[in-house]
């Protein structure tokens, strides 16, 4: 339908790619420099005296900067969070889409309303709640409160509304109960939506910065964003160490991303249309 891409097009595409890649490369290059070289003016493009000191600093030093541990914490929190969201949101979304009961419209409208309350309103009170539940500095604080967000329920409800009713009716005739219908028929048909919600919840949790920064404090319990923030504070101008920390944080994500990028991108793409 369209002309073949012009040279200009390719220049643009490659320039944009460089724009993404060069800062990342610079991060990696800096991480093997010495402190002095990292502050050279003008900067050296190729490390003159490469050393692994910075990586040693972020990967060993007796539990002070366990970057890999932080990555693991982030991964665990985001995974559990996504799982919890998918379970509770699909159940609630199904009830709201396919069942009739008293106060249904009221409940749905009420949930929907909270979609428009910005998260920072809950910051102080939820923090105190975490304190009272004894959840401060634990994985629970990262996994559970966020799952109360309205987006998942809304998103799943919209999807379930679009599933043809006949599917359920056939099963009903076979005498299946609601739970069986939900798990055997509805959920398998909702795989794309479930995948999308998983990806979005995972990403949101993975990228969350403010909440973990304040509810976590033990070095070995931090998530990547919170840990890296402390790392920057603790090493101020030791840029090789800071860049090594950022590199160690970035590499596993990027590797994971290479394998699942299709699902991630499809998930994000779908959030706009259906949401």
């Amino acid at each position: 339908m369209k002309r073949r891409p012009s040279a200009f097009f390719w220049v643009l595409v490659v320039l944009l790619t460089l724009l993404v890649i060069v800062p990342l490369l610079w991060m990696v290059v800096t991480s093997i420099k010495t402190v002095g070289e990292s502050q050279a003016d003008p900067p050296t493009l190729i490390p003159q005296d490469p050393s692994g000191r910075a990586f040693g600093e972020v990967l060993t030093t007796g539990g002070q900067n366990p970057v890999l541990r932080w990555a693991l914490n982030s991964f665990a929190a985001a995974t559990l969070h996504a799982a919890l969201v998918v379970v509770v949101a699909s159940m609630a979304g199904y009830a709201l889409a396919r069942m009739e009961f008293r106060f249904k419209n009221f409940i749905f409208s009420f949930i929907l309303l909270t979609l428009f309350i910005p998260g920072f309103v809950f910051l102080m009170p939820n923090y105190l709640l975490m304190d009272n539940l004894g959840w401060l500095d634990t994985l629970w604080a990262l996994v559970v409160p966020g799952a109360a967000g309205a987006f998942g329920v809304f998103f799943m409800r919209q999807f379930f509304l679009a599933i043809p009713k006949e599917l359920e009716e056939v099963a009903l005739i076979d005498g299946a109960n609601a739970w069986t219908i939900f798990t055997r028929i509805i959920l398998p048909n909702a795989k794309p939506a479930l995948a999308t919600l998983t990806v979005l919840s995972f990403l949101a949790n993975w990228n969350d910065f403010v909440w973990p920064l304040f509810v976590l404090f033990s070095p070995e319990r931090l998530t990547l964003p919170a840990g890296l923030s402390l790392l920057q504070g603790a090493y101020t101008t030791d840029y090789p160490v800071i860049m090594a920390g950022a590199t160690v944080a970035a590499v596993p994500v990027l590797i994971l991303y290479v394998f699942v990028q299709r699902y991630v991108i499809e998930g994000v793409a779908r959030s706009g249309i259906k949401g």
Partner: peptide, 10 residues
Amino acid sequence: VKMTVMQWAD
């Protein structure tokens, strides 16, 4: 003794 260092502000 396990020593943990962070920026004073943090």
